[in-house]
Nucleic acid binder design. Sequence first.
DNA 1: AATCGGTGCTGGTCTAGTCCAGATAGGTAA
DNA 2: TTACCTATCTGGACTAGACCAGCACCGATT
Lengths: 237, 237
Amino acid sequence: MRIETTKAVTAIGQVLQEQLGHGLLAPGSKLPAERKLSELFGTTRITVREALLQLEAQGQIYREERRGWFVSPPRLAYNLMQRSHFHAMVSAQGRVPSTEVISARLQPASAAVCAWLQLPALSSVIQICRARRIDERLVLYVEHYLNPQYFPGILQFDLNQSMTELYARHYDLHYGRVRFEIVPTALSVDAAAALRVSVGSPGLRIARVNYDQHQRLIDCDLEFWRHDAIHVGVDVV
Amino acid sequence: MRIETTKAVTAIGQVLQEQLGHGLLAPGSKLPAERKLSELFGTTRITVREALLQLEAQGQIYREERRGWFVSPPRLAYNLMQRSHFHAMVSAQGRVPSTEVISARLQPASAAVCAWLQLPALSSVIQICRARRIDERLVLYVEHYLNPQYFPGILQFDLNQSMTELYARHYDLHYGRVRFEIVPTALSVDAAAALRVSVGSPGLRIARVNYDQHQRLIDCDLEFWRHDAIHVGVDVV
DNA sequence: AATCGGTGCTGGTCTAGTCCAGATAGGTAA
DNA sequence: TTACCTATCTGGACTAGACCAGCACCGATT
């Protein structure tokens, strides 16, 4: 650990990091208020805030709007090659998943979605927006876009469950080829609202385009992850 | 586009974004100085700075230390399945790559590197640190760690070229299986220095563990990308 | 022609506050 | 017990400055 720094913000970061490293601040626990910290370190709130933002960028802490700063839990391992769904993946790592549906409706597709699903302009698609939690913490906002021709009546089902299982059970559709596109960027306005984080927070956008067992393009997902919630693994053989 | 916002920082962001979107600010061009912008928008430098940091988080602009803010060029498409090397990949996308060696030496491995390379504690490894550019812009800092038993005398070669080609030509080693691990995080101190960005800037860390054609674990790379410089694609069949 | 030294400009860092709105918890009234 | 209300605490957003260090450019010296 470097100590010779003179900058206040890195110094504050190091002290907090040191406490984090030694487990004195457990995952999920709350940090003292910004005003308390500025008093503690003998500096202004703006400077403390800058240090906190850096730790946030590193994924060590996160905030909940107007509630405070918290220590980040370990990242979820997201392996793109094991085609597992959220619920199974989270459970397998000894953690507790949950899902809530935000909206589900048939609507005109945006240009980007038309391109992904290879549909003509102004096509209608089924959009399903969901927020997902690990151990009660909101970590993922997903927009699913389904080609309606393959999923008649799907809006009547319980959409809190896994889509993968729903597809298999009621439509006999199974994922085949998948294309992922991963972009580090800020969370979209919708994603930030759903995850209850301030707009402009860093995030990881993962777009998936899914084919079924017959090589038909059936749906695509747009996932917005809290940037500190996952690490992505890929095995290429 | 939403306009009904009242917050100054999002308002500033929107104005700049609008100019960006219409190509009035071309990729690579310089934004007015922070003080100029604060005057222009009738606010303080801190507020302007916050807006700029949000655009940076979105990957639309970037800064060079004490030189100013610039419009981000398009992202490089990094496809993990096409095992192409940096030089070929960048050239194929009509852009100009370059590489400079920062350091290259035999040294004791860190605990993390020992684990990746499956070497006993306190093993020596060859570390090669390089910085890479696309169209003159520094975008990638890489630390290579080679198992020295497979690469006798490699430090005498010109390390500005592609390692992939060097392996093939002089050691008859070709990459086989590869494992990637992608983590959105802040740039490390070394990476930030090499890329000449301020410490704590957001980045994408991609760790690769490489096997050769005989399934032997030969080396690993630790890549730190500017977060706005790439988007990662993966095709899973 | 090449080098050196200013000098102004740029972002980097920091101070010392203010006002606002959402979240929380405790107490009071129905 | 339940519902509501209010005081307090939290981060969010912002003002109006300050000083410093690195960068770029230009002119003077070698």
